[in-house]
């Protein structure tokens, strides 16, 4: 578990447009993903989670997006310096992405089997019959009978569509899977089925995964490590054990206090005061300071760096642990 499949170094992404000005979407994010590991990116709407994932695949709409600085290494190779032709081999081949909404991610006028075969033919040296055979195998693998190879997406329910999308994503045995809220659109019993299946397949194939979610419950169940993202920054990162056990950043603590507790007594919720800052006008110093109950004078002056809390657990807070 020591080899890094992916290393993101000091990634900064801005969206620049004449109407809204400069939107600071991702600010100096560094992240490592080890072989076979699942890392969760948690945070609320607009925190920059999806922008991070799209940067890795270089799928950001440019303009308005601009990767201002940073490096993204896939096993030592900087993806940001790769020619576009090379990236086409990476996307779907070595890195796959699962999108949030299974209703819109599939082509409505193509048979699902053909949609899986398409991916296989693009990346593996197989003829049509071999690709179709492999696609049928993938369908079975995600728990769909291969007799449904010739069905169209509208003949599947939401959970089944998400299984098809997972089959496409895993068809070429990628080293890394980027899953952007893969179960958010699904009902909880179906979510349980899909997460269970993803976990099984991931272990079987040894794939590493970046799981983007806003659901701390899903993180607890599936992730080895977790990074909490706020206003384009990682504010806390560590093993899921460490972060859930010893929540150190006031934002992380606030997220947990906002959740109704299903296991214990009913208590009044303690929401985080205020709102996410406007990404075109981020506050000076700590980005969370305007909402932070522990905010002190030093917090509003100058940038706050990630500080070692313990082991591999880092926190971006001057007050944590005091």
């Amino acid at each position: 578990m020591s080899e890094n499949i992916l290393s993101v170094r000091n990634l900064t992404v801005k969206y620049i447009s004449r109407e809204t000005g400069v939107c600071h979407a991702v600010n100096d994010v560094s992240l490592d993903v080890k072989k076979g590991e699942t890392i969760g990116l948690v945070g609320e709407t607009g925190a920059g989670k999806t922008t991070i994932a799209l940067s890795i695949l270089r799928l950001l709409p440019m303009p308005p997006a601009r990767i201002v600085s940073g490096e993204i290494y896939l096993q030592g190779e900087d993806l940001l310096k790769m020619p576009e032709g090379g990236m086409r081999g990476i996307r779907g081949g070595r890195i796959s992405m699962i999108f949030q909404d299974p209703m819109t991610a599939l082509n409505p006028i193509d048979r699902v089997g053909d949609q899986i075969s398409e991916m296989i033919k693009l990346h593996l040296d197989l003829n049509n019959a071999q690709a179709a055979g492999k696609a049928a195998e993938m369908l079975e693998m995600v728990g769909i009978p291969s007799t449904r190879f010739n069905d169209y997406p509208h003949q599947f329910s939401g959970g089944m569509k998400q299984r098809v999308i997972i089959a496409i994503a895993l068809a070429c045995r990628p080293e890394l899977l980027l899953a952007d809220e893969p179960t958010t659109a699904l009902d909880v019993t179906i979510q349980a089925q899909v997460l269970n299946m993803m976990k099984g397949l991931k272990n079987e194939l040894g794939t590493s995964m970046v799981l983007i979610t806003h659901d701390l419950g899903v993180v607890a169940e599936t992730c080895d490590r977790v990074a909490v993202v706020y206003a384009g920054e990682i504010v806390e990162i560590g093993t899921a054990d460490a972060v859930f056990e010893k929540k150190s950043h006031p934002y992380t603590v606030g997220l947990f206090n906002s959740l109704p507790d299903i296991t214990g007594e009913r208590k009044r919720l303690l929401p985080i005061a205020g709102l996410m800052p406007d990404p075109t006008a981020l506050p000076e110093g700590c980005k969370f300071s305007p909402r932070c109950p522990a905010c002190g004078e030093a917090c509003t002056k100058g940038p706050v760096g990630l500080r070692l809390e313990s082991g591999t657990h880092f926190v971006r807070c001057l007050k944590a642990g005091q």
């Binding site: 979510q191 419950g217 859930f244 056990e245 296991t263």
Partner: peptide
């Protein structure tokens, strides 16, 4: 029972028996 067991609980290594339902509604 299945519905309750399917809810992801935000506690690492939370000990519960998950009941996975077959099929869909």
């Amino acid at each position: 029972r299945a519905l309750l067991s399917a809810v992801p609980v935000p506690i690492v290594n939370y000990d519960k028996k998950r009941i996975l339902l077959k099929g869909e509604i």
